[in-house]
Amino acid sequence: MVSRYYSKEIIKDWLVGNIAAMIKKNKNEINISAPLADYGLDSIHAVGLSGDIEQKFNIHVDPTIAWDYPTILQMSEYLYSKTLQQEVHTICVHQAVS
């Protein structure tokens, strides 16, 4: 699995953009501390969001990620540590191989 470094800001911005597009709102209308459910994103669509995350960051996430990290802020914190872990893992594997 190819990985790369994503800062917390990049992850947060991407989530805001993705969710704003999903619910047809402007980015500046999105409150990163508000539960996604407040924007009409129900549990099924939150599962769809996990697919977008997997594709964007090339990581495997639990489809319930938006249930367990219900705000953009919480989700971006979690994704930051997850992508970081993935990157460290990739570097270690690369070093071991070379």
Binding site: I44, V47, G48, D52, Q55
Partner: peptide, 14 residues
């Protein structure tokens, strides 16, 4: 249909 549509983009573009 909503269960499917939520995953459709990923299914088609994966």
């Amino acid at each position: 249909a909503s269960t499917i549509i939520a995953q459709l983009k990923y299914l088609l573009w994966n």
